[in-house]
Amino acid sequence: MQLAPGLHRIGDDIVAAHLIVADAGLTLIDAALPGYHRDLLRELAVIGRPVTDIRGIVLTHGDADHVGFAERLRRELDVPVFVGAADAERAKGAKPPATPSDPKRLVPMLGFLLHAARKGIARIPPLTEVQPVAGEQVLDLPGAPRVIPMPGHSPGSVAVHVPGVRAVFVGDELTTRNVLTGRLGPQPAPFTDDQAASSASLELLRGLDVDWIVPGHGAPWHGDVDSLIAAYRSAEARKR
């Protein structure tokens, strides 16, 4: 699905990856779950681009539902997979630490678990090779994605700013659809290693000139950063 010229969504409000489309090639932001590989191929067919146009994958963090089909593409296309250095081992299959118990509602939680099972969450191949990114830098990939370290959800979580499509991808540093409760709107994401650090990291987004703030779960936010953070802070206050 096209969100804007050069910006395409692979997936849905439950789990999503995103595609940056440029004349020089394609950059994939996250790789969702293995079953979304078919969705990727369908989207590529719609826009008339071969999968071999993918030049690289940038992960917002190393959790399994963002690693998804990345190893498949890495092997088949010999493309680099970039991830925050502190999440490199997690992307390679290291077990993340236990996180505090999050609020749950039975129906949304079961819906997420069933959807994830259908999309192959139990058979995600860990990455065997990654390109760790330390600090802020611009990657030599289509769209010139700029990686911004944002520790909190995980130690190596990053935001990925792509000025050409006026978007920043924030992974699970926030969500607009809580997969455990079904609650909609900007809010803290479940399964977060350090919620206080995650909340603080959002301030690093201020000043970005973007039209889209794109989480890994939930609808993309079409608006400015300040309004998104204000909505997030309101939800955060209600949660206390």
Score class of each variant (00 low, 15 high):
Ile229Met: 03
Leu127Trp: 09
Ala167Gln: 03
Ile54Thr: 10
Glu236Val: 04
Thr175Leu: 07
Leu139Ser: 07
Glu203His: 11
Thr99Gly: 03
Asp87Glu: 07
Pro50Arg: 05
Ala230Trp: 00
Leu77Ser: 07
Ser101Lys: 15
Gly6Cys: 10
Gln195Ala: 13
Leu139Thr: 03
Arg75Glu: 13
Pro155Lys: 06
Ala189Glu: 02
His222Ser: 12
Val133Gly: 01
Ile213Leu: 15
Ser201Trp: 04
Leu77Glu: 05
Arg105Val: 15
Val58Pro: 09
Ala144Asn: 12
Gly218Ile: 02
Asp224Asn: 15
His153Phe: 13
Leu184Ser: 09
Pro163Trp: 11
Lys239Asn: 12
Gly120Ser: 02
Arg123Ala: 14
Pro103Cys: 03
Ser199Leu: 04
Gly156Ser: 00
Ala122Cys: 11
Ile124Gln: 03
Pro5Met: 06
Gly62Phe: 02
Ala116Gly: 11
Pro190Asp: 11
Val225Gly: 09
Gly68Val: 01
Ser227Thr: 14
Gln137Tyr: 03
Gly207Pro: 08
Leu33Tyr: 04
Leu184His: 08
Asp23His: 10
Asp30Asn: 15
Asp87Ile: 12
Leu184Glu: 15
Asn178Val: 10
Pro80Glu: 08
Ala235Lys: 05
Ala17Gln: 11
Val179Pro: 15
Val51Met: 09
Gly11Ser: 11
Ala144Met: 02
Leu139Lys: 04
Ile47Trp: 08
Val81Lys: 12
Ala200His: 07
Met109Pro: 00
Ile20Thr: 14
Val15His: 09
Leu208Asn: 09
Arg166Tyr: 02
Pro155Met: 01
Arg42Trp: 06
Ala189Val: 05
Gly218Arg: 06
Leu180Gly: 10
Glu89Trp: 01
Phe82Ser: 09
Pro80Gln: 05
Val81Glu: 04
Arg49Gln: 10
Gly207Leu: 11
Val147His: 01
Asp172Ser: 13
Arg166Gln: 13
His217Thr: 13
Asp78Ser: 14
Val81Cys: 07
Gly218Asp: 08
Phe112Gln: 08
Pro163Ala: 15
Ile148Arg: 00
Arg177Gly: 03
Phe169Pro: 05
Ala86Ile: 08
Ala219His: 13
Pro155Thr: 03
Pro97Gly: 07
Ala117Cys: 05
Ser234Ile: 10
Asp172Asn: 14
Arg206Phe: 02
Gly185Pro: 10
Glu89Leu: 10
Ala189Asn: 08
Ala17Ser: 15
Leu59Met: 11
Ala88Gly: 04
Asp224Arg: 14
Asp102Tyr: 02
Leu141Gly: 06
Ile29Thr: 04
Arg146Asp: 09
Ala86Glu: 15
Leu139Met: 06
Glu76Asp: 13
Glu129Leu: 11
Glu136Met: 11
Ala86His: 02
Leu113Phe: 12
Ser157Glu: 12
Lys104Thr: 15
Ile229Glu: 00
Met109Phe: 13
Ala159Ile: 10
Arg38Val: 11
Val81Ala: 06
Arg183Ser: 12
Asp194Arg: 10
Lys92Ser: 10
Val147Tyr: 00
Asp30Ser: 15
Pro188Gln: 01
Met1Val: 11
Gly93Leu: 01
Ala88Gln: 02
Arg105Cys: 09
Ser234Thr: 14
Asp224Leu: 01
Ser198Leu: 04
His115Leu: 09
Ser201Ala: 15
Thr176Val: 03
Ala86Trp: 01
Asp172Pro: 00
